[in-house]
């Protein structure tokens, strides 16, 4: 229950961090908030040759809005974001999701970029990245590139980031002010990993649903958008029958995992139930918001 020996690096700049990363040829791990990595090291499930600690790099935790996009530095702490007015205003779905991430004392250290780069299948932040069609900025020796959410998550704990790349920024398009949103999650205990979770964002125009976003966490190996279920809402609106049809479609679309927490069938069942609840909640919230 103690980590194995490693070389410790504490670079002052991202460029320095990338240079050190390159030297270890994939044998180094980046330390952001450490709320997932350090437990893995304590168990010796991870025994990296080196740790590259980003915590002393200045400016990697800034949040700003430019041209309708909220740009969040990778090292922004989850707790900071949870209480940030800028996030509450532009990305209320993220604010809501953060309350589901671990517990307040783990959010003190946990970062937005760390959660995304770790790519735990049950994590809520990657689900929000999918639901809001966000992207991340990856910086490596060749410079910067943007990776859109659907291209980022490859497999459990595996992203499209190269071994010598660092996730430096998360970009999320600000939600339309009239959007309704909701997260529904099922877990054994408060703060536990999600067995299944659904994030929803809706925009309604009279009887029509002009934007529908549905994304998962905890159900399959990676968070996904449920595009066909979204299409049902956009075609048929937000009445009971359409919502039920979308929920049923969602349950068909997922590729549920089976583990000691839940069978694949149970996760599929939860997908339908949670999708329905989340859509209804988002719909009603939207009514309230648009007066």
């Amino acid at each position: 229950m103690k980590p194995a020996k490693f070389d410790y690096h504490c670079p002052a700049t991202v460029d320095e961090a990338i240079a050190v990363l390159g030297r270890y040829q994939g044998e180094a791990r980046i330390l952001a908030g450490g709320q997932s990595l350090v437990p893995m090291m304590n168990f010796r499930l991870a025994t990296p040759a080196a740790i590259i600690d980003l915590n002393r790099i200045r400016g990697l935790d800034q949040t700003e809005v430019t041209d309708g996009t909220v740009r969040i530095g990778a090292m922004a702490r989850q707790r900071r974001l949870e209480f940030a007015p800028l996030v509450a205003e532009g990305l209320p779905l993220l604010t809501e999701a953060l309350r589901w991430v671990g517990h307040l004392p783990t959010r003190t250290r946990g970062t937005i970029g760390g959660s995304i780069a770790h790519a735990d299948p049950a994590a809520e932040i990657p689900m929000v990245l999918q639901a809001l069609a966000g992207e991340v900025v990856a910086r490596g020796p060749e410079g910067e590139r943007c990776i859109a959410a659907p291209d980022l998550f490859v497999a459990p704990l595996t992203t499209a980031l190269g071994f010598d790349e660092i996730l430096t920024e998360v970009r999320l398009p600000a939600m339309p002010p009239e959007a309704g949103y909701a997260i529904e999650e099922f877990a054994r205990r408060k703060g536990d990993f999600a067995i299944a979770a659904i994030a929803v964002m809706l925009v309604r125009d009279g009887e029509r649903c002009t934007t529908a976003r549905l994304a998962t966490a905890g159900i399959g190996p990676v968070p996904v958008r449920l595009l066909d279920a979204e299409a049902i809402l956009k075609e048929r609106g937000l009445g009971e029958a359409a919502v039920a049809a979308a929920a049923q479609r969602a349950a068909e679309l997922v590729e549920p995992m089976a583990d000691h927490n839940a069978s694949a069938d149970f996760r599929r069942h939860l997908t339908g139930v949670l999708t329905r609840r989340a859509i209804l909640k988002a719909r009603d919230r939207q009514n309230v918001r648009s007066g």
Partner: peptide, 13 residues
Amino acid sequence: GEAARSCIMFAVQ
């Protein structure tokens, strides 16, 4: 000033 888990931080941090 904020609660954190001391078992998943390194002392050097």
